[in-house]
Amino acid sequence: MNQLIFISLSTLTIVSALFMVFSRKPMYSVLSLIFCFFTVAGHYILLNAQFLAITHVIVYAGAIMVLFLFVVMLLNLNTVADQIKTMGFRVAAMIGAGMLFLVLLASLKSTTLGTFSFPEDNGMGMVEHVGMRLFTDYLLPFEISSILFLSAMIGAVLLAKKEKR
């Protein structure tokens, strides 16, 4: 049952990611990436990481992809044609990415992962447990990330502001 869910979810993830990379229109790319993120959230639920699944949907599908959608609509990019590079460059990129995939596969082949087995659901991914870890062991990074957000906010406003001529 789990394997069946995994295979169907992975198929959806891979198909939507392929469509995102190869689609000519930016709007279709954004929409298929949103779909891809939802299937990744499904993978998180399958892995008993419920808190991360909800956070993933809220942060990625809810905030980041809405930003992308707004920018694509605002800049009116759907009229631009031919946004893929020339044929030679495309072949070179495919060979490069394929070589990377082969190298990573070869390194996976020599690893031994037999010691890991899937644990029973012990509530490890629930908000109770992850929140406890976040507010005890990882309190300093958690607080520092708020400063990161503040600086990102200021930077975004400064960069996107219209310059005075």
Partner: peptide
């Protein structure tokens, strides 16, 4: 690897 390929081929 799909992401790497997308970074390389898109403009």
């Amino acid at each position: 690897c799909l992401g790497v390929m997308g970074v390389l081929i898109r403009r």
